[in-house]
Structures are given as C-alpha cells and as structure tokens.
Design a protein around this nucleic acid. Structure first.
Lengths: 236, 236
DNA sequence: ACATCATGTTTACATCGTCAACATGAATCG
DNA sequence: CGATTCATGTTGACGATGTAAACATGATGT
C-alpha cells in the first residue's frame, strides 16, 4: 500500500494529531510544519484545509469544546458517582437538588481540565478570548453548531456580554441559570444579584481547575475526588 | 544630542517597553526584533542583556510579580477603603479580623490582574508554570530576592509542593496561612483540611480574576468594587 | 476518454530567534 | 595623556517558521 498521493481525510488527522502535539509540546511550540511532517505530508498541505494556523487551532478548539460540553451535559444527566453514593436512581434526568447538580457540574468541569490540561491554555489563548469562556457557557445549549469548519468567530459571535439573559430557559445554559436562581433563594445568597451568584460559582470552579492543573500535587491525589466534592459543596 | 551609540540602561527599557508590547500585542505576538526596533536599536542588541526571549520574559515576569507582591502586601498593611468605610484606624498593621483581611487580599489580587491583564497570561505561560502560582504565594514573604537579573528558575525553586507547610509563621505567607487557619475555626469549614480551605479561597479569588479579565463587562463596571467585596465576603 | 476540481507538492519570501564576527566608546591603568 | 580593556551595540548569517503562488496529481462525472 503506497502512502497514496491523496491522504484522504487529512483534515481529521490534522485536528487529532494537532491536539496530540498540543498536549505534548504546549501551545507556544505548536508548529504547522512539524505537524505536516508527522503526518508524512508536505508543509502547506494543511493550507488546503485551514486558512491559517489560527484556523487549525480554532478547529481543535471546537472539537475540544464539544467534548467539554458533552462532559458537562453528561454530569447533569447521568451523574458520575459522588463520594457518598447511596440511592441508585436509574434515570434521573432532572437533578434532585440544585446544589447537588452544581457540585456535579463543577466536578465535571474540573475533571475535564485535569484530563485535558492544554485545553485551558487553548481556551484562553485564542483570538476571541474575551468572549470565549462565556461562549463556552452559552454553547452548552447547543445553539452554536459544533461543525468543525465554522471558524471560531462564528462561535464567539453568539455570546456577548448579554448572553446571560438572552438564552431560553429550557436550554442547558438556561438550566444552569435556573440552578443559580435556586441557589440564590437561600437566605445566605439573597444579597447577591443573579449574575454575582453565577460568577461566584463559575469563578470557584474555574479557579479550582486552573490551580489544580498547574499544581497537580497540592492536594493528595488519591483523595482528590473527595476533596473536590467537599470544596464544591461548601460553596453553597 | 546624538542618540548615542551606547544606549545606557537599555536593559530597563527592554523590560518596560517589553511589558508595554506584551499588553498591546499579547504574549503570542511578542517579538524581540520589533521590540528592538521600537527602541531604535538593532536586533540582537537585547542579547547583550538577556540570553533569550524567554529570559526577557522572565525578567518582565519578575518585575510584574514584584508589583503584584507589593499590591498584595499593601492591601494587608494599609487597606484600600472597603465599600463600607467606617473606622479611621491610622496604622492597623495586624488586620482586625481574618475574613476581612482575606477579603482585602482577594480584592487586591483581582484588581491587580484587572489593571495588568497580560500578567495572567505571563504568569501561566512561562517555563516553570507548574510551580508558578504557588511560588507567587510563597514569594509573598520576600524570601526570594526580586533582583531582576535572577532567572525565573531561581524563583520557582523556592516553591515546591511542600511550600505550604515549610514557611515560617511570621512570613507573609505564614500570615496568610494563619488567616486560613482562623477561617477553618468556623464550624462550617471544620470538615476541610487546611490545604483545602486554602485552595478554596485561592481558587475563588483566582477564578474571579481570570473570568473578569476576559469578561470585563459581565458585572456592571460601576458597581464592580462593591460586587467583589460581596462575593469575597460570601466565601466565608 | 476527457475535463474538472479538490487536494498535495514545490518554490519562494518575510519574519522570527539566535549566534558569530566586528565596531565603538567609556573606563582603567601605565 | 595615551594605550588597553571590556561592556555594550551592530552587521550579517543561519535555520525554522507561517503563508502565498504556481504547479502536479488523480478521483469524479459527463
């Protein structure tokens, strides 16, 4: 089998091999030419599929963020076992309690970045970084198509400063907002606005992810899951 | 006055102009040659002062982190006015209450990164990123000299996974640890380890900084200080 | 069979980080 | 004062990079 002039779906291989190189060498050392060489293809071959290096990174970002979204959604629908697993409810689509749901969501968030360390850098080093984190939140509802060809701009354009109020209640983000509202019902959080409660939750979760990714051993690794649960539950 | 062959303290100008370029063009587009050109000096001139681009960035990091340290220390010694300023105690070196001190510290932390947006990227994109955040915490005590010529390695070498327990109680970090211990005295936090309380606090503060830097308008900017105080106080 | 067109390849260029060889001039010492 | 030394700045070169233009190949549909 000759390696065949036409590589046939080079595109997918660029994205997946690119992701691999990203996690190996870091974002700063990400190189188009080395990537092409690794795939046994000449440099500039990638430019038949991506307009620029940034576009490739955007595609990788899109794939990663799709996985991210899936992980978060899964944590709400089919919760991974908490530290103290008691009831065996088979298909609890609606989470029993807001703070439990937020704990699950938070744990999935942190776990994802621990499993994909480079994703954090990717998510914040891309051109539309200003709107990125919120577009991720917004993209929870699937309103933004994850089709890999769409440039990042398109994704980010859906999430401005006002996306907090503009998404429908039955979207995933709307559900998150609902959880936040429920939390805000507790007397301890009454003096905060919705956005403040939301930001406080997200900040804690995101901060845990950031710090733990770069400080993997700050907490004893074997008790990490339990620690995470405790920390997230304590937030509310 | 001819621009003089010898530029005389090019080094400082490289650091400060470099910091400026960093905040303008971002870390990814940071260019040695453009920097030299902006200073009216030929490329490679910088290599008389810094062994590599990374070394320059490390120097910029050191300067930035010194300012960071100063801002944090100042917030503990001479607190910036909280939202509700009542008593005018002239020189309250010892903060009156642990949670108040932590709120002040947190606000200084967030404010610093809002004022120096690129510092966040700098702090996490540098070679010793693994130990960076904790070395910053550790460097609160001034054990690490801020002399600009020292490479980053030297700084980071002082902060390993064990710096949490190894610093003396009367250092700034020790003080922070004391604050954390005081907080842990409250019944709501008794079930958490010291490190967990510490991480929870730091995560919230760091997360607030990260999210607000990239989402400057998520909270109404005019009430940002008040919101921050509320959010930080609610953590405890 | 042939034309079309998506997909690879080659060549070329500007820019980048970095090094080696050289130039300059301020400081030191006779 | 004049010669020497040495830190500092310059020039030119090299290899690697991102990217565009011109060209090649071969799968596809008429």
């Amino acid at each position: 089998m000759k390696p065949s002039y036409h590589h046939k779906d080079l595109r997918k291989q660029l994205v997946s091999a690119g992701l691999r190189q990203l996690n190996r060498d870091g974002l700063v050392n990400f190189s188009m030419r080395r990537l092409a060489q690794d795939l046994g293809v000449s440099h500039a071959a990638a430019y038949r599929h991506f307009a620029s290096k940034e576009a490739l990174l955007a595609a990788i970002f899109l794939e990663t963020s799709a996985a991210f979204r899936a992980a978060l959604s899964a944590s709400l629908v089919q919760p991974p076992p908490l530290a103290n697993a008691s009831s065996a409810s088979s298909s609890a689509v609606a989470p029993p309690d807001a703070s439990v749901a937020l704990t699950r969501l938070g744990r999935a968030y942190v776990r994802f970045f621990l499993d994909n360390p480079e994703a954090l850098g990717l998510f914040s080093a891309l051109p539309e970084e200003q709107n990125l984190m919120l577009s991720l939140i917004a993209s929870l509802d699937g309103a933004v198509p994850a089709t890999a060809s769409a440039p990042l701009i398109e994704l980010a354009s859906h999430a401005g400063a006002d996306c907090f109020d503009s998404l429908p209640d039955d979207s995933a983000f709307g559900l998150l907002r609902g959880l936040v509202r429920a939390i805000r019902g507790q007397p301890a959080f009454r003096h905060l606005s919705e956005r403040e409660v939301m930001l406080g939750y997200w900040a804690k979760v995101h901060g845990l992810a950031s710090l733990l990714v770069t400080q993997k051993n700050f907490l004893p690794p074997d008790q990490l899951d339990a620690s995470l649960d405790r920390l997230l539950e304590t937030a509310f």
